[in-house]
Simulated assay, not measured.
Amino acid sequence: MRIRKHHLFWPLAMLAALLLFNLIYSPDFFSLQVRGGHLYGSLIDILNFGSPLMLVAIGMTLVIATGGIDLSVGSVVAIAGAMACLTISKGSDQGSLGLVLSAVGLSLVLSLALGLWNGLLVSGVGMQPIIATLILMVAGRGIAQLITSGQIITVTSDSYGYIGSGSLAGLPFSIFLVAAVFAAAGLLTRRTALGLFIEAVGRNPAASRLAGIRSRYVLLAVYLFCGLCAGIAGLILSSNVSSADGNNAGLWYELDAILAVVIGGTSLTGGRFYLTGTVIGALIIQTLTTTIYMIGVPPEITLVVKAFVVLVVCLVQSEAFRQALVRRWKTRHYPAEREAAKHAS
């Protein structure tokens, strides 16, 4: 009973149920193969293709923990990928490691600048987070298309492609990027006072200011970090396909990231947050996407099926919803409790 009350119980149960369904539908779903020193399999694909979403969701978790939200992460993903590919395409030797490193550095600096912009609007100007980030969500998509001139920029760089499709110790390199960002976020928020500051700002901004917490700097930090995470995700996405599409790259990533955060147990009202739960939530969404494609759901209803399953997952996680079901079941099967419920009403 105590295990069921743990905040990770229901996300892990939902992930296990999805994986079990896939195993029943496709008995070789868990099989792994080694080819050329690299691991291949459906589970590896889920980790690899889910890496950008996990990164964006980690950054979104800290923003939501402060009581805010960042709707611009999808646009930042597109901008980062577009800037990196544009820089590489302009070089005389696209395979040059120095050129790739400069392109990556420029994209990450630009992502930090975009995160700083959001942070300044929220903490400095006092604009509502949903409005402040909605501005960049709309304008950022246009900026990405301006960078690419409305075209798909393709690059031929093995060094850049390694970010999204390379392997390290037999595993996709993108997994190690997620692990590094997750570890850094965990250390900063759980081993320092930053995590307490974020939760304090999210629960009661006025009280946190009276307690001496500089909430403006906390807000700036989380939006900067969120922009950085989105930038890294953009590099992974664009390098994986060796191209940048300013119109479609990172499209609706902000909604999937918010869903991952909520599934992971973090409240949209701010306060307590769970980074591990967010990663599990992102894995649930990616596993669900893989499942939908595997069972052959028609493309025109894919989003409907995905939305329905996510709704069921969120309802199952809801303590109030589960208690309401239990009360209804008891009043239907136990007459004494049914009469008591009538008198109470």
Score class of each variant (00 low, 15 high):
residue 28 D to K: 00
residue 72 S to N: 07
residue 59 G to A: 06
residue 14 M to I: 15
residue 57 A to Y: 09
residue 32 L to F: 13
residue 35 R to I: 03
residue 55 L to E: 08
residue 23 L to K: 13
residue 45 D to N: 15
residue 53 L to F: 07
residue 50 G to A: 12
residue 34 V to G: 02
residue 15 L to T: 04
residue 25 Y to R: 13
residue 42 S to T: 12
residue 49 F to S: 11
residue 36 G to W: 07
residue 54 M to H: 01
residue 48 N to C: 03
residue 59 G to Y: 00
residue 37 G to A: 08
residue 26 S to K: 14
residue 55 L to T: 01
residue 31 S to T: 12
residue 38 H to G: 01
residue 69 I to A: 08
residue 25 Y to H: 14
residue 66 T to V: 12
residue 15 L to G: 08
residue 47 L to G: 15
residue 50 G to P: 11
residue 21 F to M: 12
residue 45 D to F: 02
residue 17 A to D: 05
residue 56 V to K: 04
residue 73 V to S: 06
residue 75 S to H: 03
residue 61 T to Y: 09
residue 29 F to R: 04
residue 41 G to H: 04
residue 73 V to M: 09
residue 56 V to F: 02
residue 53 L to Q: 10
residue 45 D to M: 11
residue 71 L to A: 09
residue 44 I to A: 02
residue 22 N to L: 15
residue 65 A to H: 15
residue 61 T to P: 03
residue 54 M to K: 01
residue 29 F to N: 07
residue 50 G to D: 12
residue 30 F to N: 06
residue 55 L to S: 11
residue 62 L to K: 02
residue 18 L to Q: 03
residue 56 V to M: 11
residue 39 L to M: 14
residue 67 G to T: 05
residue 40 Y to C: 02
residue 44 I to G: 01
residue 61 T to N: 10
residue 34 V to M: 15
residue 56 V to I: 15
residue 73 V to T: 14
residue 60 M to D: 04
residue 54 M to D: 05
residue 75 S to C: 04
residue 21 F to K: 11
residue 31 S to E: 10
residue 16 A to Q: 02
residue 37 G to P: 05
